[in-house]
Simulated scan of single mutants.
Amino acid sequence: MSGETPNPGKQSASNKALAAHLLMRSPGPMINDSYEPENLKMDEIRFYRANEKPYGAFSNLYRRPVEFEGELFPTAEHAYQAGKARKPEVRRWLMAAPTPALLAMAAHGLYVWDIAPNWSKIKFERMKGVLRAKFSQHEDLRELLLSTGSARLVESATVNNAVNRLWGEVNGVGQNKLGQLLMEVRDELRAELDSTDAQTVKRGPQRVVSKSKKSRPSASKCHATVEATEA
């Protein structure tokens, strides 16, 4: 062991040089030269509370009217839970809940004899129908859903119970049925949009042919119309 007194300044410079050398040798993540921050695609989008922006709109508690089966409901949750009650009076009681959250709580707490006998068989189909209505009837919501691309949509709940693990996930565990149905609706809406675009391209620009020369307005009349419009 050398008896030379260590030089703190010299050691600091040496450590910095070593760190820089290791950093240069480290392969690090692969970087695409064409990468731009705005082109970043999310692989997974989590949502839960209706007041979260922007994806809180994916929650069934989000306040946006939904017309379903000929009836107008305040939220998707109302439209979904309206099919759960066996008796009309129980249905009216559910619909009278002061908030969507209280409606959901009341519906989850129904006695077995108050629930429609085939509910377990039809509830997922009904939920998908409600989601289709919600995102078809509101252009801004449809655009938001389509803007998620191919990202996995997950309702990420905070309270660990059977209902939350069925419709979403809690700490990464759950069936995420709501997220799955949203992704199915997203795919269907995109397919419809692509089909419409394809038909428009196939038809091409429509040419309007006048049946009679007399029906064509004169150049002076057209000019006068433009001036009147611009005025």
Rank of each mutant, 00 (worst) to 15 (best):
K10G: 10
N39Y: 05
D194F: 11
G179M: 01
A133I: 00
Y111G: 15
F73L: 04
Y62C: 07
A101T: 11
R132K: 15
R203A: 12
M105C: 10
E139W: 02
S26W: 14
A198P: 02
S156Y: 12
P37L: 06
E192S: 13
Q137I: 01
K213T: 14
Y35T: 09
L72P: 00
A57M: 08
Y35P: 09
A228Q: 07
T75N: 04
L182N: 04
N160Y: 08
Y35H: 11
K211H: 06
L102S: 05
H138V: 12
S218K: 10
K134A: 07
D43N: 15
S26L: 14
E44P: 03
S26H: 12
E192K: 15
G9M: 05
S147P: 03
N161R: 12
N160L: 10
F47M: 00
Y48L: 01
H108T: 06
K53I: 14
K53N: 03
L23V: 10
S14H: 13
I122C: 04
K41C: 06
L23F: 10
K87P: 01
T196W: 05
A157R: 07
G28L: 11
N7V: 03
N7R: 04
A198R: 13
R46D: 01
L145E: 04
G3T: 14
N7S: 14
E230S: 09
P100A: 04
A101K: 15
W119Q: 01
K128M: 11
A224P: 00
K10R: 14
G56A: 04
M24V: 13
A162D: 10
M183K: 08
F68C: 01
E67M: 05
L22C: 09
M24W: 05
